[in-house]
Design a protein around this nucleic acid. Structure first.
Lengths: 173, 173
DNA sequence: TTCATATTTCTGAAATGAGAGAAATTAATA
DNA sequence: TATTAATTTCTCTCATTTCAGAAATATGAA
């Protein structure tokens, strides 16, 4: 797909943002491009539109699939793979947050627990207490994420748009 | 302050986690150390405990102050600065999320808006619609963050511990 | 103001990460 | 099965980031 200068600018901005989110610039750019495409496109198309190496695009697509931000599609009589981005921004945000949470807390509870047990063993109550608090935080984060996975995206949109009002409600519970 | 092997292990783990959160390992380690300290400690103390260069500790403390995770303290008859970490883990999480959100969406709304206006100008409706959705998402994120800043930490702990139940409640609204 | 000490900024080296191109692998068609 | 196109993995280079040590700056006491 041909892209206009405006689209190019958007994609570049999106790429910059990605780097701040711990996503490689080219990966975010590939995502930005797919987000602006009307229909599924193939890898070669992405390469020429963004002037990136084919290998780089391949790696980026794999990464985006891990985030579940793009899906593969196949066309009859064409052996190439086509890709589309999740077009609903709320679903997009949700999946990004979910994958980031996973990457960022992966194994953390276990690691802290290991230290916590050692601290208790040694009778170091102060350290144990601090570690316990940290563990409670981490495991709660995991629980919230687990629970969130069971609800539809529309709920997040609703919750986010309520914004502050929601917190006001909780305060009254 | 002298630290035990268990504390060392915890600090190292915490440092590793930091890198996944986009925080330099030594910065996260300094924070981990302060979190385990009973009282305020000075920079030199941090250096010897963690075997880091003085300059590195200085930079790390500055970074942690930006996150509002550590506070300065001064002791009578001592010209050195002493540092303490926020000890409440919920307040800690809150401040980390707030600063990350700030860094990660800083200027994003404006950047997308700029592209959006151009797309409208060019009469590219499809692109404009997609950009508009993206902008709605980003500005909602900012609004939620703004609203969150006005509520006490205890509320977040409450909300997080309610976890899934809370989402169930929203579904019924 | 001068001296001593605490702290920050600058600079360069080492480690890490991103991305291009080549090589290898996979898959479809004849 | 052989051939060719599509995709992925490997490797090397270049850019970025982290961090130590040096130099500069700031701060408090005499």
């Amino acid at each position: 797909m041909q892209i206009s200068d405006t689209q190019k600018r958007f994609i570049r901005r999106w790429g910059e943002m990605g780097t701040r989110w711990g996503i490689a610039r080219s990966t975010a750019m590939v995502h930005g491009y797919l987000y602006l495409c009307r229909e599924a496109v193939n890898a070669e198309d992405i390469c020429s539109a963004l002037e990136l190496a084919r290998s780089n695009v391949s790696t980026s697509l794999k990464e985006l699939e891990q985030f579940r931000l793009v899906e593969r599609e196949s066309k009859a009589g064409d052996r190439r793979t086509f890709y589309v981005a999740v077009s609903d921004v709320w679903e997009m945000a949700r999946r990004i947050l979910e994958e980031r949470r996973r990457r960022e807390t992966e194994g953390a509870v276990a690691a802290v627990n290991e230290c916590l047990l050692a601290a208790k063993e040694e009778g170091d109550t102060f350290t144990a207490t601090r570690m316990e608090a940290m563990q409670e935080l981490l495991s709660t984060a995991e629980n919230v994420a687990d629970a969130a996975r069971r609800y539809p995206t529309s709920l997040f949109r609703k919750a986010a748009l309520m914004g502050g009002k929601l917190l006001g409600l909780i305060a009254k519970l």
